[in-house]
């Protein structure tokens, strides 16, 4: 699940010259992902994992790293 998220983020939001991301890479606070891109991330999670994450849970504080995303996904 983690790897699928990393692959999606790498393919959708990063370019070839960006460093590879890990589960601890800060994505929103570092500016790699802007808040508008979170909608497509939410859609991906719903389609791929069958988990509908409510918008208030997708914030820069709680959804900043892949590890944090995994924690939230597990709650739903």
């Amino acid at each position: 699940m983690e790897q699928k998220l990393i692959d999606f983020i790498t393919e959708e939001f990063l370019s070839d010259d960006d460093d590879p991301i890990t589960t601890q890479t800060k994505l929103i606070s570092s500016g790699l992902i802007d808040s508008f891109s979170l909608v497509s991330l939410q859609t991906f999670i719903a389609k791929e994992f069958g988990k509908k994450i409510p918008a208030p849970k997708i914030t820069a504080q709680s959804f900043d790293t892949v590890a944090q995303m995994m924690e939230i996904i597990d709650q739903f």
């Binding site: 808040s35 909608v39 939410q42 859609t43 918008a55």
Partner: peptide, 15 residues
Amino acid sequence: SDWIRDYLFFPLSQG
């Protein structure tokens, strides 16, 4: 702005 994002922006964008 959080309210707009959560209850307007996200629902309008989904699907």
